[in-house]
């Protein structure tokens, strides 16, 4: 099989994201949520244009790929996620980059995971 030449490949954007949730979420649960929300908001037609794919996800941090130009739409889809695996959750986009490497270096590596403070200790 021939590899598609770089000039013919779709330009991509990579979103570094964190999931704010009480529990550590599995990749499958998160994927299910992304695709059901994407189908609900923009439908099959829009989803095919946005080209969303979850590349890497562990410890509630991940990299999501979408086509260039649909970054804002992808953000809107991620914002409509309210629950993951039965627990309330927020998807927070840390930043957008042109390559996986720069997204990881710029936004993921330096960050610690965030949890909502427990009110009992205050």
């Amino acid at each position: 099989m021939k590899v598609l030449p770089p000039t013919l490949r779709d330009p991509k954007r990579y979103l570094a994201l964190e999931l704010i949730c009480e529990i550590r979420v599995s990749r499958e649960d998160f994927l299910n949520e992304i695709f059901s929300n994407s189908a609900a908001l923009i439908g099959d037609f829009g989803s095919s244009q946005a080209g969303i794919r979850l590349l890497d996800f562990n410890d509630n941090m991940g990299i999501l790929r979408c086509k260039r130009g649909s970054g804002d739409l992808t953000r809107a889809i991620l914002a409509t996620i309210t629950r993951v695996g039965g627990y309330p959750a927020i998807v927070n986009v840390l930043g957008i980059a042109g390559t996986v490497r720069s997204a990881t270096e710029k936004y993921i590596e330096k960050r610690d995971s965030y949890n909502v403070p427990d009110d009992k200790h205050i």
Binding site: R75, A76, A79, I90, V91, N92, V93
Partner: peptide, 10 residues
């Protein structure tokens, strides 16, 4: 709550 950039996208 959602982050400001997400609110703008919505």
């Amino acid at each position: 709550m959602r982050a400001p950039r997400e609110m703008i996208a919505l």
